[in-house]
Structures are given as structure tokens and as C-alpha cells.
Nucleic acid binder design. Structure first.
Lengths: 365, 365
DNA sequence: TTGTAAGCGTTATCAT
DNA sequence: ATGATAACGCTTACAA
């Protein structure tokens, strides 16, 4: 009763009457009848095996075309154990990954490479599966491998993830440390990216650099935070806890964070933010508080979303190479799929600092 | 030989050795053995049929859980003819729909509703299929229905589309007029949207209103163009062919289009553009040519992408209700899937004019 | 070069 | 309430 396979009943009965009308698929069997051969011969002919008489093949292909035949991937994958589908998990099933300006780019890179390699993309969206895990969903659908793009709280490593790690399902995560047999992950070099930004700000004379971090739990947030501290250290700037607040990657929280910093420290001259979204919020909050950006205070973001360039003032930011993250993740996955023994090491994609108009030399007066 | 089902060989042989290791799926059969029942009993138990002894069911469910069982959707759909997948076609397989700022919103709405209804999303990306059509791809994968989001040149109605129209595959297109058995389409009310914008500009005193259209072939472009002419007519403004150029939804073409208009007509005081992207381009081109927006010339866009609000000057635009387009398309599709007899009429989603800073009263001097 | 037959994991029909 | 059995469309030994 409580076992949710029961949920699998879907709408079964709604369609009973309808079975025959839909999908009048022409099968290999009919082709066989048509050309007077056996199904296995037809199968071999269609699949390009060499041990088939050219004339037979021609007839088969001819018939296939005439009958408007197309192979059923369901039937095929039932026997081959290969679906030629790559699974895709997004965020927490609430927060739509599709809308995240960062993931869009990653996604289209994934899409490109996956398509070239002859796969379709299965996006897991079904919400009627209470007890499902990444692993069970992958197995049910029989995807050949899967890519994880998680957001928010889902970025914490949890049971589901370790389960997936042990499943031997080929799998690559983005931004989430997933290591194990047949799985790995790809991320930006968050540490170095932020560190560069600190050095840049220091070069402009800033010594009171606030950091609006992401959160306290995800690896990327911690790496960015550590990059900030390492940057300060490099530049021999004292680390001041008052200058750090978390903005949780949301506009609202970031605004509050900025205000908190301003309350605690009046002399801050720069805000380094762990995302562009939070940086926009910082700019707006600072302006509301009467500061001019970048004349009074400099602001640096992280991501380089499209909006960063057209924003006013245009945003200096640490650019993530989103396309490269996506394509790199896909490459890894395809490799793992092809070679079952593989467990490639994680990959760090370099960031680059993009200088724009939200930063300036520290004010002298 | 030339028949591309041959392509279907994929990488078959690469994996031969590997079959056993992956997917050691526990099947209904093993559960049957475990609890000492027949497979059919197990199937019924798991699927919540009423004609099964509660105790038996309990044992089955127990065993299923212990053996870590999950049903194979491939096997199931082979017999039920239902895959619980919704297919998704994007653009021209070159121009990634994922990146289009308009489609992102549409997509996440689709994703939401499709997920609620118990479906996963199959994004067709496989490029190793030369002779494939929408129809054959849908049939191969056995999707229960499909949504078309096409871009650029693919928006023209073509053989593939009429083929799909006749296929009886449940199908909803966005922005493309697809009508027929079991299929329909959803679009913004482009005509009225643009017409409103013309009236608004006329209300600000503009009489020389240029129109940077999309293209000459797609329905949405024609509707927008007609909206423009209807608007002029309503406001008793003469229609001047010189004030119309196509921008083909690209930044570059739109820039050229704006320059062409300026060359032919010096007195133009407003540009109405068929997309925000083109409007941005118009603003930039106008500024390059020494005009101030909105002081000298007003600019209106279409779409209301996120960037429109943060752009400088923020863009007055005709907002498309993207989420509503997506959810409406999904609703229609689900209806069609459930009722084979249905062929709902097309749906027009209203647009609304969003007033921002790129428009102003016409200059008096 | 071809055909026969078994099997992939399910569901469905028909007895019992 | 349960179990045989066929069927879904395909691939693949193995035989011929």
C-alpha cells in the first residue's frame, strides 16, 4: 500500500480503448513478411551487418522505406541494455534549473555534444515518484549515463548522491563533488577565480574588501570563501570577520548582507560577491544607501551572466566558462560510458576576471 | 546502403563485454521466485490491482523493496504503448533553443506542468539521424506527445510539419501554426500586442514610427507587422513603406535595418521593434548615430526579456507571457493525450505593454 | 547467407 | 485470488 510503486499505475485505464489506434507501428516482422525473409535477416540487414546478401539488404531497405518503418528504441534497449539517452537532473525539482542564467549556457553545451555523440537527453521531471532516488530513476529509464546540475540546498552531498556514487551508473556532476567508480565532477576554479579578484581590488588600492558569500555548506561556496581569504593573505590584508556575510545566491539575502556589512563597518570600499545576481543587489543596495558605484565603492561579481555586460554600471566580474563546463562534463561522461573501467579525476575549469565599470581605484579623499 | 537506419548501429560492439556488469536489474521474475508467486501476480500486486490478496501484496512489496526493484519503463512501454515521456524539439538543432532568453521561461513552465502530470521530458538532440523527421523520431522514442519550440527558419511551415500534423501524434507547437487531428498551437497575441504599442507611441505624439520587423515568412512576424499597420490605421497615421525594415531577430541585421530607415527618413521619432534583442541594437545604433534615447527617439521592444528591465535606458516593451505560453501549451498537450478525439483550437496569450524609460513624448523643437 | 528460437521485462488474456 | 501463456519489437546465439 505504502510502497510507491503503486503510484506507477499512472492513468493506465484511461487509454485502454485507444491502444490500437495510436502507434500503428510497422515492425520488423512485417518487413520480413513483405520481403519473404526472417526477422533476424531483416534485423541484420537494417543494422548493417556484413553477413547479408546485398540483394536481400536492398529489398529489406526498400520495404522498410515503403512501410515507413522505424525501430522501436524501447524494444531495442530492452535487449541491448543501451537506451542512447543521457539523463539530466536539475536542482530540487522546485527551483527550475532551466531558468538559472548560469545553467542555460552549460545546458546548451551539453546538448550540443550529447547530440553529436548520438544521444537524446532525458530530463527527469516526473514529480509523482515519492521514494525515487537519482539511482532508481536512472535505472527505470535505462539512461546510459547522467549529468547532475543541482542548485541551492541540493548541492550538499547527501545520501542520494552517495547512493548514486556507488551505483556504477556513469555520472558526472557539475559543481558538486562526486567522486567514485564511473563518476566524477566538473567545476570552475572558484578558489583561484576569487583570489584573482581580490588581487585586482588590492591593486586598485582597496584594503577594506567585503565578501558576500554564497552559503556555508556547498563546496563552491567554501572554495570561493577560501579564495577570498587566500587573496587577502597574498596581499597582506588583515582578515576581518565583520566583512563577511552570506547572501545565499538570492537578491534579497544579498541586500540584507550588504546592509549588515555597512552597519558593522563604515570604511568598506569594495564588495566582492559570489554571484552576479548578488552583485546587482549590492549595487542597488549601495545606491539606496547613498553610495556611488564605483566612485565610492567598487563591486565585483561572479559568473559573468549576460546581464553583467549591459548592466549599469556594467559589472566587473569573475567569468565562469560555462560552455566549457558543459562540454567538459559531457566529454567526461561519454568517456566513462565507453570505458566501464574509467573513473576520471575531477576537472577544474579556469575562470577569468572581466574588467568593467563597477570597479575603480579607491577614493583618495 | 544509403538508408540511414544503417546509422542505427551506433557503437554496438564497444559494449559487448560489458552487458552483464551494468544494469543488474532485479526483475519481476525474481520477486516472483522470492515470494513463491507467479509473475502476473507480482505485476498485479505492484500495480495496485484490487484482485490480489492483501497478504500476497504485502509480501511482494516487501520483496520488491528488499531486492531494490524498480520497473523497467522500456519493457513496460513496449506493451502498454505509453512511455510517460513528452518529446521536445528545439529550433534547428544548430541554434540552441536552450540559450534563447525567451524559451527559457517557456521551458521551465513546461517542465513544471509536465512533471506534475507524471511525465519526463525527452529532448531530441541526437544528430546522427539524417533522414529523421519529427514524426519518426517521436515514434522511435515512443513519446506520448510532443512540444515544438522552433526558432529562426524552422518556423516556416514545411513538409516535416505537415507530416507531423497528419501523424496523429499528440502535439502542440509554440508560435508555429500547427492545426489538425490531435494537434494545435499556442502563441502570443502578437497582432494586438504590437497594435497597443503603436497606440501608445501615437499617444506620445509620435507620427513617424518605424517598424523593425522579424522576417517575411513566419506567422508571428507577419502578425506583428499586421499589428503595426492596424495600429497606424487606428491612429490615422499614414503607412510609409520606407519606415519598415526586417531585422531577422538578430542584433546585426537590426542595426543595419535601423540605419536603412534613418537613411531613407530623417524625421522618424520612434522605433518599434519585433524583439527586445533588436530593440537593444536599435538603441545602440541610434546612440552611435548621435541620437539620444528617449529624448530624440523612442524605442519599443517585444518580449520583455529579463535584460529589458536592467538595460540602460530600461526598455519599454510588449511583454510576452512566457510562462503562460509554456503552461498553456502543456495543458493542451496533456488534454490531447488523454482524449484521442481532441483537436483543440489554437490559443492566443495576451501581451501587455510594459512602460519604461526608452520612450518619451515626441520632442517639440 | 539465412532461418529458428530464445530471451529482454513487462502487461494482458484467459483459465482455473 | 492466482497462474500459464502469449504478446510487445527487437537482437543474437546457434544451426543449417
Amino acid at each position: 500500500m505504502s510502497f510507491d510503486i503503486l503510484k506507477a499505475v499512472y492513468f493506465k485505464n484511461v487509454f485502454e480503448n485507444d491502444f490500437n489506434r495510436r502507434m500503428k507501428m510497422t515492425s520488423i516482422k512485417q518487413i520480413a513478411k513483405e520481403v519473404g525473409a526472417s526477422v533476424s535477416t531483416v534485423s541484420r540487414a537494417l543494422n548493417g551487418y556484413h553477413d547479408v546478401n546485398p540483394k536481400t539488404r536492398e529489398k529489406v531497405i526498400e520495404a522498410a522505406r515503403n512501410l515507413n518503418y522505424f525501430p522501436s528504441t524501447a524494444a531495442r534497449s530492452l535487449v541491448t541494455k543501451r537506451s542512447h539517452m543521457i539523463g539530466l537532473f536539475f536542482g530540487d525539482n522546485v527551483n527550475s534549473g532551466f531558468e538559472d542564467p548560469f545553467f542555460q549556457k552549460v545546458l546548451s553545451a551539453i546538448r550540443e555534444l550529447v547530440g553529436d555523440a548520438g544521444y537524446d537527453l532525458l530530463v527527469f521531471t516526473n514529480k509523482n515518484k515519492e521514494r525515487a532516488t537519482y539511482t532508481t530513476l536512472c535505472r527505470e529509464r535505462g539512461v546510459d549515463g547522467t549529468i547532475l546540475i543541482l542548485t541551492g540546498r541540493e548541492k550538499q552531498v547527501n545520501i542520494q548522491l552517495t547512493d548514486l556514487q556507488n551505483s556504477e551508473i556513469p555520472c558526472v556532476a557539475i559543481d558538486v563533488p562526486l567522486e567514485g567508480k564511473r563518476c566524477t565532477y566538473v567545476e570552475s576554479d572558484n578558489f583561484l577565480g576569487i583570489k584573482k579578484a581580490v588581487s585586482y581590488l588590492a591593486g586598485l588600492g582597496h584594503r577594506q574588501i567585503a565578501f558576500i558569500g554564497g552559503d556555508e555548506v556547498s563546496k563552491i561556496s567554501l572554495d570561493r570563501l577560501n579564495g577570498y581569504r587566500a587573496g587577502l593573505n597574498d596581499e597582506e590584508i588583515d582578515y576581518v570577520p565583520d566583512l563577511i556575510e552570506m547572501g545565499y545566491y538570492s537578491k534579497e539575502s544579498a541586500g540584507v548582507a550588504v546592509k549588515n556589512v555597512l552597519k558593522k563597518n563604515k570604511k568598506v570600499t569594495a564588495f566582492l560577491c559570489a554571484s552576479d545576481l548578488m552583485a546587482f543587489s549590492a549595487v542597488e543596495t549601495l545606491q539606496e544607501e547613498g553610495f556611488s558605484v564605483p566612485r565610492d565603492v567598487s563591486v565585483v561579481g561572479f559568473d559573468d551572466v549576460d546581464e553583467a555586460a549591459s548592466y549599469h554600471p556594467s559589472l566587473t566580474t569573475v567569468k565562469q566558462n560555462k560552455e566549457e563546463i558543459g562540454s567538459s562534463a559531457t566529454e567526461q561522461l561519454l568517456k566513462i560510458i565507453e570505458d566501464p573501467a574509467l573513473s576520471p579525476p575531477p576537472i577544474k575549469i579556469p575562470c577569468e576576471l572581466v574588467l568593467r565599470q563597477s570597479t575603480a581605484e579607491v577614493r583618495k579623499d
